[in-house]
Amino acid sequence: MKLIIGFFGLLYDLVIGDCWQIAAETAAILLAGIGLLRIGAIPVADFSVALGAAIMLAAALVIYLEGRISHARKTLRAAGDSDRHA
């Protein structure tokens, strides 16, 4: 049991790491892409560029928002700690 938990822990560290939002965003965009491709919503000739651009923009948005939120949390926590010490 310990070995199985350890294996999945290792797999989680490897694929998801310390930012699950990136894995979730990638999965969401790819699932949406598969859906759009199957129903033929976008002409196949334009699909590759559209999907590539969507992946890049969504990743940029996630990195920006996640960076902002985690940094703001850390900074505010540090400010709170220094207030308590003072």
């Binding site: 790819l30 892409g33 598969i34 491709l37 199957r38 033929g40 196949v44 699909f47 590759s48 590539g52």
Partner: peptide
Amino acid sequence: VFWVVEGIGFFSPAGSSLEWP
């Protein structure tokens, strides 16, 4: 990005890789 976009063609009705311009 390059490979995932090409490979997603597997799920298309044709079932073959997409191509980048």
